[in-house]
Amino acid sequence: MNNFFKTLLDRLLRRRRKVKIGLYGHPNSGKTTLANTICEDWIGKPLGVISDIPHETRTVYKQEEVVIEKDGAKLYFDIIDTPGVATKVDYKNFLKYGLSEREAKERAKEATKGIIEAIKWLDDVTGVLLVMDSAEDPLTQANITIIGNLEARKIPFLIIANKIDLPESSADRISAVFPQHTVVPISALHRENIEQLYMEMVKRFR
């Protein structure tokens, strides 16, 4: 198609439907790190706070009007960074990171609210990057529930096998468990394979 019409078509489509891409996954899988990498690359500033303590993101953060351009194709979207989804939240797990008992309990309470908010947002997103820590077992209830709901709602998604820089990581294990879905191995922290991810995003969500 000639470029003029393609741009026109892009504009029309954009007006009709706003693309909202949610970052979903377990606490600590690297959602905010990835959101920051994307925002730094295309907006010039990060989105949220990263921490090695799980449940750092406890409310949804949004960056509107991000544009990824890859080989002349453009993807216009809002990025939605959601709190990590889990089936349990035990404040005692936060104590070993040096939080006081009061801080840990407060964090746990906020984390439970954040998980509810993340699940509610499944009604609003039009695409999802499901971020997994590829050094961990991918077959968890949180991942199964997220994938099941995305499939039921026909929301397109990519599985992101993050942290491939870690020696114990295995993106293949994720592909083996979810063979019917596209798995993109990356390191959000060290920017490994990020260009490939942008290509896949433009392909999948545009």
Binding site: I115, I119, A142, T145, N149, E151, A152
Partner: peptide, 11 residues
Amino acid sequence: LTPSEEAELIE
């Protein structure tokens, strides 16, 4: 459970 029941259960 169905996916929506699972989500409901987590909520």
